[in-house]
């Protein structure tokens, strides 16, 4: 028996008794960041393949969703910062070893491309908006420009979107101090999940049956791929060092087992895969339900990953005293 116990009470907020530095703000950001990547990819795909008829929503209206989603995500990311006035410090240096620095700079590249991609769709997709923009001095000119370069912009958007999608996973997987995150599968998993959550948007809002069908089919494939990647993720932990095995235990019999399987894998992956498949057979309400569950599953994936990863640790000491008592000091 080994008893490792803190002799001096230690109760650093958000660090003790177990890490809780990142909560819903980061999960929302990772969710919306992934979705943004997916939106950009599908919009770019529609543009590159000139599917303005078949995939009308994706071609003309989808792109605008990306800056909205990402900006919401950036807002929650900002909310998470503890030293907010210094947020500008992300842009006074580039730290090549820091995934977060990469992320910050990727956003600098993503934003203009994303905006241009959106502008290239405004006149067809959102004429009212385009009308307002025309009244701004260079508005018309920028829209002309982005329409002329639409396919080039779309081509640029693809690698950036892939980078953004993968980055949301790498952000976590680069933190080797948290064994649950130490898997190379996290980047691809978050990218595919992001695409999946983006794909359900046209399923829900597109007026074209063909487009809906296309995205439903795509989504079945993506969910399947996601299931494969979740399996690879679990297998990579199962084949890791002792700390990884302990981390895996959190969802394989440990305290997060129920949450991971019953709140994420089943309702967020397996059920929507089946429902989406039924949706393909023509049961539209099943398709819609599947879409909602995919969104739920995409968020739960981020939420649980953030939660469980923080609980997994190399350093774990029992406490002798009730750490809550220390709150008397600051009352």
């Amino acid at each position: 028996m080994i008893e490792e116990v803190l002799v001096t009470a230690r109760h650093n907020p958000k660090i003790d008794p177990s890490l809780g530095i990142w909560t819903w703000e980061i999960s929302v950001y990772l969710f919306l960041g992934g979705m943004t990547a997916g939106i950009m990819l599908f919009a770019a795909w529609a543009m590159l393949t000139r599917k303005q008829e078949v995939l009308a929503f994706a071609h003309d209206r989808f792109a605008l969703w990306a800056p909205i989603a990402l900006s919401l995500g950036m807002t929650t990311l900002f909310l998470d910062l503890e030293h907010k006035l210094y947020v500008w410090r992300f842009y006074t240096s580039f730290e090549p070893t820091s995934p977060m620095s990469w992320g910050a700079w990727i956003l600098v590249l993503v934003y203009p491309v994303m905006i241009l991609q959106t502008l290239s769709t405004l006149r067809r997709g959102y004429p009212t908006l385009a009308g307002w923009l025309e009244r701004i001095p260079v508005g018309g000119w920028v829209m002309d420009l982005s329409e002329n370069w639409r396919r080039t912009i779309a081509a640029l958007a693809i690698p950036l979107a892939v980078g953004l999608g993968i980055y949301t996973g790498v952000l976590l997987s680069a933190l080797s101090a948290r064994p649950f995150w130490s898997s190379g599968a996290l980047g691809p998993l978050f990218l595919v999940s992001g695409m999946s959550t983006a794909a359900v948007i046209p399923v829900m809002v597109s007026r074209l049956k063909g487009e809906r069908h296309f995205f439903e089919t795509t989504d079945v494939g993506l969910i399947f791929l996601e299931v494969v990647l979740v399996s690879i993720f679990l297998i990579s932990l199962a084949t890791g060092a002792a700390y990884h095995l302990e981390a895996l235990d959190l969802v394989m019999g440990g305290p997060f087992t129920e949450a991971f399987w019953l709140w994420f894998v089943v309702p967020g992956l397996l059920v929507p895969m089946v429902l989406a498949f039924l949706g393909l057979r023509g049961y539209r309400s099943f398709g819609l339900l599947a879409s909602v569950l995919v969104l739920y599953g995409g968020f739960m994936l981020r939420y649980l990953m953030v939660e469980i990863g923080q609980v997994s640790t190399w350093t774990d000491y029992a406490v002798q005293f009730d750490p809550q008592l220390l709150e008397r000091l600051t009352q």
Binding site: P17, S18, G20, T23, W24, Y303, V311, S312, T313
Partner: peptide
Amino acid sequence: MKRREFLKISGALGAAGVMPGL
């Protein structure tokens, strides 16, 4: 391995309103 109760989810979401001073 630290064991944090899953119950935290609802608590954490509920804490959304508590935002540190900007």
